Simulated assay, not measured.
Amino acid sequence: MTVAGLLRKAVTFEIGMWCSLWRWVRRRPDVPAGADAFPYASAVTPVLWTFIVLSAVEIPLVDWLLPWQSLRIALLVVGVYGLLWMIGLLASMEVYPHSVGDHGLRVRSGFAVDVRVPWEEIVAVRARRRSVEGSRTVVVEESGERRAVSVTVMSSTQVDVELRTPLVLPLARTRGRPVTELRLAADDPAALVRRLRAGLADHAARTDAARVDAARADAAAPADGDAR
Results as ranks from 00 to 15, higher is better:
R211G: 15
T157Y: 06
D187A: 03
R106Y: 00
A190V: 13
S135C: 05
G16M: 02
T152Q: 05
A214Q: 14
V115C: 06
L66S: 10
R177E: 14
V100W: 04
V3F: 09
W49H: 13
M154K: 08
T180Q: 11
P67K: 01
G16A: 08
E121W: 05
R197W: 08
L196G: 07
R108V: 08
L182A: 11
P166D: 12
A210K: 15
D202K: 03
G16W: 00
L54F: 06
T174R: 01
L54P: 01
D188N: 14
S131Q: 12
A35P: 09
V25I: 07
W85Q: 04
R216I: 07
L7V: 15
D224C: 02
G199E: 08
P60Y: 01
E94Q: 12
P178L: 12
E181H: 03
P222F: 12
P222G: 13
G82K: 02
A198N: 04
A205T: 14
A33E: 15
L75G: 11
K9G: 01
K9M: 03
V113G: 14
R27N: 06
D36K: 12
L66P: 01
G176F: 05
V123P: 03
V179I: 13
L76F: 15
E120T: 14
L75S: 14
V139D: 00
S20G: 10
W24D: 07
W85I: 01
E162I: 07
W119T: 09
V57D: 12
D160L: 12
T50A: 07
V3H: 03
A112F: 02
L71H: 06
R228Y: 11
I87C: 10
V44S: 05
A210G: 15
A217F: 01
R206S: 10
A127V: 02
L76T: 13
D218M: 13
A41V: 00
W64V: 14
H103I: 10
R8K: 11
V107T: 06
V53T: 09
R183W: 06
V132S: 01
E14C: 00
A33D: 15
G79R: 02
R23M: 10
V53W: 04
T12Q: 09
A127E: 13
V62I: 15
G110L: 05
P189F: 10
P32I: 10
S131V: 09
L90T: 00
A221E: 15
W49G: 04
A185W: 03
A43Q: 10
D63C: 06
A112W: 03
P97D: 03
A223L: 15
G199D: 09
A201R: 11
A205R: 14
T12W: 07
W49N: 14
L184F: 06
D187E: 03
L200Y: 02
R216Y: 07
V117G: 12
